[in-house]
Design a protein around this nucleic acid. Structure first.
Lengths: 206, 206
DNA sequence: CTTCAATAATGACCGTAGTCATGATTAGAC
DNA sequence: GTCTAATCATGACTACGGTCATTATTGAAG
């Protein structure tokens, strides 16, 4: 049993999953999520309908695949930033603002993506969620260690506050027919608001 | 046409709606939301299935009825608090923390309630949403006027940040099989975190 | 009392998400 | 090669959310 070399079985599995994801996003973009049926996705991906549900528990769960890639990407970039030293906070913010580019491109799609994210966001068994929380808390702890954030606050709470403000700002921006404000500026504004309040206090402050 | 006296028609309409809501919540509590079908609700409320959808666009939309009552309640209480003068912030916080009692009572139900709230939260045509945002922004403006919050920040942004932190804290608390932290304490912690950062600065500070 | 327009109730109907029993592939053991 | 157990693919099937054309009720006007 070749363990390190991925077996043919594993390869085929990945291929099938990839085909389904690819087909799904193509149709989602063209026709919209609601107007796309699972059968259409399966037809395009050349699999049976049952196969789809072997890979994803819900139609919308294909978005989870994308979210996982993002988290992996964020892990890379933020790791590099933190390794470089101070001042890190603004660079961290920049990474998240850059991610927002995606949302600006296809608002309809982004809305479904975020709804699915929200659905899984608090599920501790979800890998994406777990890694996202670990990443966020790690970043906060680092910023506390270097003195950019006050140390008398719980890293998990800080991470969640920032993450929630980030996502719900995007959610609000996505809703109306015409965006009422520039997305990236508003994200910067709101997150900065929170972070300002997290500046080191008293004798901790430089 | 008696305009001020609500007509029989209006009364019956309200009655029917109330019956549907009542039946729905009874079943939701007993059997769970997903396990309850619209037909069961209608049977209990003694109306036809089509009637349900004359009143609510989705099965879960019955939660909106509850949300609206809450917002009306919050309008009352917060109005009274603001009328009384300083210091208002902690009293405002207490109101929201008291609302959290409901969430602690039925976690399964609360999760669906919050999901429906999230779904409508950014829809400008939704009355509940509109009044909630107006209320929140009003409160922030008042707190700014009395000097409890710094004045150089956008009331709408502040309201949204606080509201999002509030709701997502609850959402996180609702998720796992066993609550990992005391809900009300965590809400207080996180909201205070944000508000601390919103304290008046520089020459504004007393 | 009759007419009429507006509004509300109805339930047959439809489309699709998601399930599940069955059959096909795989990879290792001998 | 053959056997076996695990894994994966399949598509018929079901149950339910949601729609819509039709019918019934309402209340005011003549």
């Amino acid at each position: 049993m070749p363990e390190l070399e991925v077996s043919r079985r594993e390869r085929k599995k990945e291929e099938t999953k990839e085909r389904i994801v690819h087909a799904a996003f193509q149709l989602f973009r063209k026709r919209g999520v609601d107007a796309t049926t699972v059968e259409e996705i399966c037809e395009k991906a050349d699999v049976a309908k049952g196969t789809f549900f072997n890979y994803f528990p819900r139609k919308e769960a294909v978005f989870g695949h994308l979210s996982l890639q993002w988290v992996a990407d964020a892990e890379q970039r933020l790791g590099a930033i933190l390794a470089k030293g101070l001042p890190a906070w603004h660079k961290v913010l920049d990474v998240f603002i850059e991610f927002a580019t995606f949302y600006e491109e296809d608002r309809k799609l982004s809305k479904h993506l975020l709804m699915e994210w929200t659905r899984c966001a608090h599920d501790p068994t979800d890998e994406t969620c777990r890694r996202w929380d670990e990443l966020g808390e790690h970043v906060v702890r680092q910023l506390q260690a270097t003195g950019e954030l006050r140390r008398d606050v719980d890293p998990a709470s800080v991470h969640r506050v920032l993450a929630d403000v980030y996502h719900s700002t995007i959610m609000m921006w996505l809703e109306p027919p015409q965006p009422p404000f520039p997305l990236k500026a508003e994200i910067r504004k709101r997150l900065s608001l929170v972070v300002e309040g997290l500046a080191p206090r008293g004798k901790e402050a430089k």
